[in-house]
Design a protein around this nucleic acid. Structure first.
Length: 860
RNA sequence: GCGUCAGUGGCGGAAUGGCAGACGCGCAUGCCUUAGGAGCAUGUGUCGCAAGACGUAAGGGUUCGAGUCCCUUCUGGCGCACCA
């Protein structure tokens, strides 16, 4: 038996001296150095010992002004606990860490400090890596790290862009961007607070710029369908599904009425349709497969999920940006419509999309033909119709759509009831299902059945077809900024957008004097002549480089692939490594990334799979979300002044105690409010553990029933498997209390086994303390390479059980009974109970429920 | 408005449909050292002297049995913003 006799002279308490106390300030730096020097966390990526691999991933941070945040300590602590647990269970665990160093946060910090982000990032990552991340005691493999702002990394980010470009998935189109007229710069959505610039408070306006997009919408269905087979939290799957927002319906065509159709309206004349309208016979959405009848002067395709209500479509509404607006507007209406469109353009997206706002709009003077009824219906422009969604135009059915109802009421447009309901439509729109009316041959048909029937009928006549639309929009990749990977495209006057040859990658981000926004709605790179001026890879003629950089989310959409292969410069990731190590086994992520980061990583993986670069299409087998650490119920932020600095606490109580405390606060997947009030509970616990392991053993006793040990091992194991770190720690506390209570009763061997098991069970949660105690017990280096304790299932079973006796479902007595008693035994025991007997005396039980070994419920 | 997660002692929180409140904080009493914000023991949901009754945001339902499942409502966090 390994007793404290094996401890070194230095650690043995000498007579008369105070006993040695737990001092994290001494043991933590000691083991941090030892771990590094022995390469304990260097992963054998070749898997040469044949153990199963486990890729334990957590979201990498962006280096910022404040340094490491308690939130990081919390999430990395939990994720690392899982990594260490998996390692002790016999896996080769790969747990890398890196830096999401490009992007707006780092750039903003650099602007504030007035230091070029290139130098600043180098400085902050060094601090992060060596000072802060090192101290939290995670088993990061620093031999495989990434920094997304390094040319060796972003070379491959650019390579990925080129793969998408070649596959036709990177396209250029016009899109509105947020523009701050005071800062003279493009703003990200997150820099726009309530329609105003985050920095100067100026109202933000929309500007149209030609930008690069990734066609993520082409993958919408697969991104949606694959969700079913992912081991991800329902919360995140549901939110992604809602974000993708698949909706099934129909695209119906409303032809713009010919001049002749308006004969009875004296106010109209032939000039109502501008001459260029004649060759504008395309749909608003260039991607639409739908063909517009040539016979129509012009036609408006609309998307609807309610084709069954088309007989009630009494007007058509175009989004203000809809391309047909200028073409169809009549001369006498032009001024009003132009003013309305102008006003809508000036308004911010936030203002325009305030759902509670009163409806506004303008009549174009033009009319369209309802394809079902053949009736002439007026065409309006209104900003409640969004140009990006569907076809940018709707058929308005005021009887059965709330928004259309409000609009029709305000502008006095006709409302027709086409779905019968009890409530009718006198007061509000009826949006539910029901039998059709006022719908010609479809009267009486249920709205559900009518959806298909009417779409089919219109399809036969060439004015409609089934259509699926998504809420998801294409991924805007362009950023008019400095701090990101230049988009590897060259614009040639002859050959258009030409990809930079892969051999010429990376397109280096030049180190510039002025990395500030330029005020020209272009990236600062546009003013670097040596960067911009180049030659066309196709013809060799003079050409210009693309000056936008790519979105920071592209950097993080593939970093988990790169970790596996950082030793290769000539490939983004090595196929052997990919085969051995991916997909990621476990990904710990934040709720704030459920939509963007997680979706983009899935998309890029799927595309790389389709292009033959990856053998799988989903990057993360298992995902678990962690909550935020809040302070006084609010998110921590510098402006609130409620940021908790982990360094202060680590200095005071040690990394182990701080990490264990954060995990003990509450469930890992929920938000937890930080308050150091409870910290003392955890430090006391670790002190107690220390004393149990290090203090001289009391005189051995006569021995104790060791069954509880097996139950504690099982409990801790079960809780860690569920990522319930707080209840795992609670079980460890109970276990150490049990050891303490039996100190004098254990035999020497029992005591050693109990302490040894405690040390092993603590290793994933308090790695420094466990390592120190392990050494003092004479265990070999390192505790983190030991096998996880097992338990004997036979020892888990209780010999006696507490039988709960209920009368009518109410608990009346508890009786100690031998395990394995049957119903007859239980009834007999219950009948003999002084508490139960009077309650059933003389009554005949109506029903008896017996849960073996647990509970007897007598219904009288 | 839509979606989503949650609501349990003084506090953080625990509880495969089967003993509500594990574990910890705080508090109380005692012990021990008294240099301590150290340690040990016991107690601690509410009402009640007690037996007991009542208790998981509110109301209803399913069930022998509901904190847990279903419906309605309220409150809070987060996400999205008129998605046709």
């Amino acid at each position: 038996m390994a007793d404290e006799t094996t401890a070194t002279a230095a650690t043995a308490p000498s007579a008369g001296r105070e006993r040695e106390r737990y001092s994290p300030q001494e043991i933590e730096p000691k083991w941090q150095a030892r771990w590094q020097e022995s390469g304990l966390y260097r992963t054998d990526l070749a898997l040469s010992d044949g153990k199963p691999k486990f890729y334990n991933l957590m979201e990498f941070p962006y280096p910022s002004a404040e340094g490491l945040h308690v939130g990081h300590t919390f999430t990395f602590g939990g994720a690392d606990t899982n990594g260490r647990f998996q390692r002790m269970r016999g896996n080769t665990v790969f747990e890398p860490m890196g830096f999401d160093a490009f992007g707006i946060h780092s750039e903003n910090y650099a602007l504030k400090q007035n230091i070029n982000p290139m130098q600043l990032t180098a400085r902050t990552t060094r601090r992060y890596r060596y000072e802060q991340l090192g101290r939290i005691g995670a088993m990061f493999d620093w031999d495989h790290t990434v920094d997304t702002s390094q040319p060796g990394y972003y070379k491959w980010t650019q390579w990925i862009f080129l793969q998408l470009f070649k596959a036709g998935l990177a396209i250029r189109k016009e899109a509105p961007v947020n523009w701050c007229p005071s800062c003279l710069t493009v703003l990200a959505n997150e820099q726009v607070i309530d329609g105003h610039c985050e920095r100067c408070g100026t109202a933000v306006v929309q500007r149209e710029l030609t930008q690069w997009f990734f066609s993520i919408t082409k993958y919408a269905d697969r991104l949606l369908d694959n969700l079913q087979r992912l081991d991800w939290p329902d919360e995140s799957k549901t939110r992604q599904a809602n974000w993708i927002g698949r909706s099934e319906g129909a695209e119906l065509v409303f032809a713009v009425a010919e001049a002749g159709d308006n004969a009875e309206r004296g106010t109209r004349s032939a000039e109502l349709i501008s001459p260029e309208g004649a060759d504008a016979g395309t749909t608003a959405d260039a991607n639409s497969p739908f063909r517009v009848p040539r016979s129509a002067l012009s036609a408006i395709p609309v998307f609807t999920t309610r084709p069954d209500t088309v007989f009630g479509a009494t007007y058509v509404v175009l989004a203000p940006e809809h391309k047909l607006v200028p073409q169809i507007t009549t001369a006498e209406r032009r001024a009003e419509v132009e003013a309305y469109v102008e006003g809508a353009r000036a308004a911010t997206e936030i203002e325009r999309t305030d759902a509670g706002r009163e409806k506004t709009g303008a009549f174009t003077g033009a009319y369209a033909i309802n394809p079902a009824t053949g009736a002439r219906v007026p065409i309006w422009v209104a900003d409640y119709v969004l140009v990006q969604y569907g076809t940018g135009a709707i058929m308005a059915v005021p009887g059965h759509d709330e928004r259309d109802y409000a609009f029709a009421r305000k502008f006095d447009l006709p409302i027709v009831e086409v779905v019968a309901s009890e409530a009718g439509i006198a007061e509000v729109a009826y949006t539910g299902p029901g039998p059709l009316k006022n719908s010609g041959r479809f009267d009486g048909l249920s709205s559900d059945a009518a959806k298909g029937a009417i779409t089919a009928w219109l399809a036969e006549r060439g004015t409609g077809e089934p259509r699926v639309t998504y809420r998801l929009r294409d991924w805007l990749i362009s950023r008019q900024r400095y701090w990101g990977p230049p988009i590897p495209i060259i614009h040639c006057p002859e050959h258009g957008s030409v990809p930079v040859p892969e051999a010429d990658l990376p397109v280096l981000l030049p180190e510039v004097e002025n990395f500030r926004p330029t005020g020209t709605s272009k990236s600062p790179l546009a003013s670097v002549e040596s960067f911009v001026k180049t030659t066309c890879p196709v013809c060799g003629g003079p050409a210009e480089r693309e000056t936008d950089v790519s979105d920071v989310f592209l950097d993080s959409a593939w970093y988990f692939l790169r970790y596996s292969s950082t030793e290769w410069d000539d490939r983004p990731f090595d196929q052997g490594r990919i085969r051995d190590w991916l997909p990621v086994d476990m990904y710990f992520g934040g709720k704030e990334h459920v939509i963007m980061h997680h979706l983009y990583a899935r998309f890029i993986t799927m595309v790389l799979h389709d292009l033959g670069h990856l053998p799988f299409e989903e990057p993360f087998k298992k995902l678990r979300l962690h909550g935020f650490v809040t302070k006084d119920g609010a998110k921590m932020s510098k402006s609130r002044g409620n940021v908790v600095n982990p360094d202060d606490y680590i200095g005071r109580v040690g990394s182990d105690a701080f990490r264990a405390y954060l995990l003990f606060m509450g469930p890992f997947d929920q938000d937890n409010d930080f308050s150091d009030k409870n910290l003392v509970g955890v430090t006391r616990f670790l002190d107690r553990v220390w004393r149990l392991a290090v203090d001289p053993a009391p005189t051995p006793g006569t021995g104790v029933e060791m069954r509880p040990l097996h139950r504690y091992v099982k409990r801790v194991t079960d809780e860690l498997e569920r990522y319930q770190f707080h209840t795992a720690i609670a079980a460890l506390m109970e276990y150490s209390n049990w050891i303490g209570a039996n100190r004098e009763v254990f035999t020497a061997a029992q005591r050693a086994e109990a302490v040894r098991t405690l040390t092993l069970l603590l290793a994933p949660i308090t790695p420094f303390l466990a390592e120190e105690l392990w050494e003092r017990q004479g265990g070999g280096y390192s505790v983190h390479q030991q096998a996880w304790p097992t338990f004997d299932p036979a020892q888990i079973a209780e010999e006696t059980v507490t039988l709960v006796v209920q009368i009518n479902g109410k608990m009346r007595d508890r009786i100690e009974a031998p395990a394995g008693l049957d119903e007859a035994d239980a009834r007999e025991l219950a009948g003999a109970s002084a508490k139960v007997a009077p309650l059933i005396d003389g009554k005949t039980p109506k029903k008896i429920i017996y849960v073996p070994g647990k509970l007897l419920n007598i219904v009288v």
